[in-house]
């Protein structure tokens, strides 16, 4: 068994992880959500930190079964904030986080079911007035109320950032894989239900939710004799052909470059 990374210093750092109920991509069975469990893994590997897990939703059996998946990672308890169907959980989470006042809030990038817009962390950051970092892959250190973290960029690039705490970070799918969930701790752990009033999201309630249909996709055939080219085409992420990297430029020059680009892209019409 490989020893877990456990030498990262962070005295009395309290971390809240927002966990959702996952849905298996093939069978749709409830379980841990992949990105959320990576967030829990990140939090657990940060030594000296206290980790608390938070879920807001309907306290169904299916939901509890899914939450037990997180308990199986060796977590003692999960707080389950009871909410009714179609509730907008931003408000209740804001309230809870304000009162528990953690230094760092981690969440997956996007839920595996429901609305799945990935907007919740942004809304929370806005209402709490905290900074938000997306695409977190690892936390390098936490010192003097400041965290040094690595952020994922396309094609395996990483950017090192310093973030003032408290902050919210969404965890990228390239963060370290979550440890195995074990039956014993999953069965023993407690799910603590907290009743809170639900704020019904009328718009969401009016949505008709259907199963997504996989649309046939036209294959992009790359006609090239070179295996390297074909591989590059297959492995390439979409978007971003041109562009330029500006470094060590003045604010004026930077602003001008952005302005010019926006004009070119017809975002700004003057």
């Amino acid at each position: 068994m490989k020893p877990r990374e456990s030498d990262k210093k962070s005295a009395s750092l309290s971390i809240s992880v927002l966990v959702s109920t996952g849905r298996h991509p093939i069978t749709g069975r409830p379980g841990r959500a992949d990105q959320d469990s990576r967030a829990v893994e990140l939090a657990m590997n940060l030594q000296g930190g206290s980790v608390s897990l938070l879920h807001a939703g309907q306290p169904t059996e299916e939901c509890k079964e899914a939450l037990r998946g997180y308990l199986g990672m060796g977590i003692d308890r999960i707080s389950l904030i009871e909410q009714s169907e179609h509730a907008d959980i931003t408000e209740v989470l804001t309230k809870t986080l304000k009162s528990s006042n953690p230094s760092l809030v981690l969440a997956g990038t996007q839920a595996e079911q429901g609305e799945g817009s990935g907007l919740l962390p942004f809304l929370l950051a806005e209402s709490l007035g905290w900074s938000l970092v997306s695409g977190l892959v690892s936390i390098e250190s936490v010192e003097n109320g400041q965290a040094t973290i690595l952020q994922a960029l396309p094609r395996g690039q990483r950017r090192r950032l310093k973030v003032r705490l408290p902050a919210i970070a969404t965890v990228d799918e390239s963060a370290e894989r979550a440890r195995q969930s074990a039956f014993g701790p999953a069965r023993r752990g407690t799910i603590e239900t907290i009743s809170e009033a639900s704020h019904i999201d009328e718009t969401l309630a009016s949505f008709e939710i259907k199963k997504a249909r996989v649309r046939p996709k036209r294959l992009k055939i790359v006609k090239s004799s070179s295996a390297r080219d074909r591989f590059k085409a297959a492995a390439a992420k979409s978007g971003g052909g041109g562009g330029q990297v500006l470094s060590d430029v003045s604010a004026q020059e930077g602003a001008e470059a952005i302005f010019k680009l926006l004009q070119e892209e017809n975002v700004l019409k003057l």
Binding site: M1, G72, M73, G74, Q180, S181, A182, F183, G184, P185
Partner: peptide, 9 residues
Amino acid sequence: LTLEHGETP
């Protein structure tokens, strides 16, 4: 090892 530790290698 599997059910308590979750350490199936």
